[in-house]
Design a protein around this nucleic acid. Structure first.
Lengths: 418, 418
DNA sequence: GAGAGTTTGTCTTGTCAGTGAACTTATACG
DNA sequence: CGTATAAGTTCACTGACAAGACAAACTCTC
């Protein structure tokens, strides 16, 4: 016996003793969660925001306890009261509770091949400010690009109302990122390798003092997708660009893996004898369904936007249609392999695959049906990303805000203003 | 805005209010966990089991609190005191605390292609009883096989000491199993399809009244492997048999996927134009590296045990060596795809791959090195399973015991005896 | 329009599981 | 045999929630 007899669940793995205060922290987060969820889940204007009493019945806490907790959240400016609403119903009117607007904001940023940008979201999910700059950042100098980005951060912060406190910043990058604040390991299409992005960024006064974390672009876009909720809570997000990234979401959680390097779908092998890839191996999916490969196969220039390809295939260009079919097939094989290994409900096509979805879905679906062992019981759905064009930035901001939502107790004593 | 503004972590996703009692439950589990871990983690007889004071300093609870909790655990017969040990040190001697033996037991069972079996483990990790029956269960009748299994359960229970309380039973099956107690969907090599195993099993008096859960064989073997701890806490377990299963373990947790169907590595595509597989697709890994395919490629009979192949290759049989090399290569490609998608530290070779590992590891390692994008920073290790021959059964019993360890509060008032 | 009925939110008391510090117990050492 | 030291116990105190009474604000009915 040189091993623990009985391992324990991850929940109990947090080897932290529970004190009285732990109850507060937990229930505070529980109440805040309920207010945030309810604000999002409203069918078009239908339900009113929950009152203290609603939260009490929904969570199982007593009205007294909820009252105390809500008062703390209001004091921390995480929650706001709306004026009591006329309900035409007996009894004292309820005070609706909503996420506070413009008080706590998360900064989501992105550096990608053809643009950089920053946006600020508040707890209500509102975009308070947004700046982006188009450009060509292939093989760029990290310091120069990050100086530009810091400038955008400064502009966004200047646009924020005085009441706003910036909780932190998260930066989306198209490459391998060590978990949390580790350095960027490799971003092939930017030409960046082993760059200490956080240090370069926090050297600028616009960013200094802000907690900064990094994450993979596809991971963050997947997070935005999970928030959009269309895909359920268990899906594989595929981000098609020049490279092909992916992120697994299981029960609403993005799965980053041991180092945070999960999701390199583009370097899945489709054919061992296939063409050589930039990564050194042969027959990677990127060579069949990456943006460059796809445009080339369709007989178009690599620099063209996908819209050109879309127009061509809509106009009846047979070569373009063939290119899309074969890309869809390769993608389908890779995704079927994946779904055999990691059982997800839905495959969400994002990036350039979102607009191209009408010409890809059938081929992908067919591969999933024929190659996934469990498909007889639960065929994986193929969906289209609903996270919008700035999904990664939005996801990045959401990551920051989630940290606040998960631990509101840490914000109780925080001062106003940025 | 038709979505929650800020999603929350899975930990807070348990929408349960924390009451005073929650502290007890949590800290009770915390203390028990510490005692169980310490009992396992002992280097060869070196450290003595922890005392109440040790637990207090390790967990951060006060000695008073730990004392109260330990007394409850002793009362529930989950923990035992050993006689105070002479330490040749000033001060009152400590009372060592160890997991109770022979009091709470978990039943782990397995139905596989060539044997069925049942074993009983207690909290200390001791095997209290074990029965197995060899046989050929290809294309067998589920009811008949499960009747045999129920018989073994009866024998094992009869072998248990009178003090033992059976906490539950978990059954390992080589196929797709719905999460928790759902029906067995498909076990290709048993020829079972959509069988309500739990109902068939609990119909027998030997099993009646026992909570029974099912799980995939590879998942449970991976759990036993995680317990053995040799592979770290983040690995991919590969179970090579006639079929090839796999299970992902991340941070010590087995990852079952949406329905619990993750890990069908055997039906990963290695070559789209390859030979047709029993599942209907072409070029599945099983056709290259499954037990039958491997033996056939080595020019041996499918019915032979792998030991024969081992002997042949050790004796210099060139054809056998070639078969192993090419199987290793195919396995390596499939595993490299996987590691690109799900970033794990280690790949653990189990099942028939464990004894064959010396002839497979090089080929697999080479594929991982050349095909995994992140391999320049953290090459995934290739290891050999240490869980032993009955890994799945052990893992199944551990699953049952873990449920007890995670919620000792539920066992406080439990009566003695089975 | 006054009172009954209803629902929301607050307030008070009781309970429970921690903390902290004194206290008891059991050993080693000079 | 007294002193030092460490383990384990006990008890007053505290913080957080439950339970239920109470106050507030509104509708409905007679």
């Amino acid at each position: 016996m040189t091993h623990p007899a009985v391992p324990t669940a991850a929940t109990a793995r947090r080897r932290v003793p529970a004190r009285q205060g732990s109850l507060r922290e937990h229930n505070l987060a529980l109440v805040l969660r309920h207010v945030l969820d309810a604000a999002g889940a409203t069918a078009p204007g239908a339900e009113t925001p929950p009152s203290r009493a609603d939260v009490a019945t929904a969570t199982g806490l007593t009205r007294g306890a909820v009252s105390a907790l809500v008062d703390l959240l209001i004091g921390a400016r995480l929650v706001d009261e709306l004026p009591p609403v006329v309900t035409a119903r007996a009894g004292r009117p309820a005070v609706p509770l909503v996420p506070a607007r413009g008080t706590v904001v998360g900064l989501g940023a992105e550096v990608n091949v053809d643009y950089i940008g920053v946006r600020a979201l508040d707890l209500a999910g509102q975009v308070l400010a947004h700046r982006e700059t188009a450009g060509d950042y292939r093989h760029s100098d990290p310091a120069a690009v990050l100086a530009l980005l810091a400038g955008l951060v400064g502009q966004v912060r200047a646009d924020l109302p005085a009441s706003a406190r910036v909780a932190g910043m998260c930066l989306a990058l198209p490459g391998l990122v060590d978990r949390v604040t580790g350095p960027l390991r490799l971003a092939p299409n930017l030409g960046w390798r082993d760059v200490d992005v956080v240090a370069l960024l926090t050297a600028h006064p616009e960013v200094d003092g802000l907690p900064v974390r990094l994450a993979n672009e596809a991971n963050l876009a997947a997070r935005a997708e999970a928030r959009a909720g269309a895909a359920g809570q268990s899906f594989l997000y595929v981000s098609g660009e020049v490279g092909i990234g992916a992120a697994v979401v299981l029960d609403g959680e993005v799965f980053a893996g041991r180092h945070g390097w999960s999701g390199e779908l583009g370097h899945t092998v489709v054919d061992q004898q296939g063409p050589r890839c930039t990564c050194g191996a042969r027959g990677c999916l990127e060579q069949y369904a990456g943006k460059d490969a796809l445009l080339r196969a369709a007989g178009r220039d690599v620099e063209e936007p996908v819209e050109a390809l879309l127009a061509a295939v809509a106009a009846g260009d047979e070569r373009a249609a063939r290119a899309l079919r074969s890309a869809g097939e390769a993608l389908g094989v890779a995704l079927a392999n994946f779904v055999n290994l990691v059982d997800v409900e839905t495959v969400v096509l994002g990036g350039i695959y979102a607009p191209l979805a009408p010409w890809l879905t059938d081929a992908v679906t067919a591969q999933l049906r024929s190659r996934v062992l469990a498909s007889a019981w639960a065929q994986a759905r193929v969906g289209v990303a609903a996270g919008g064009p700035h999904a990664a930035m939005t996801g990045a901001a959401v990551v920051v805000l989630r940290a606040v939502a998960d631990d509101p107790a840490a914000w109780l004593g925080a001062p106003a203003g940025a």
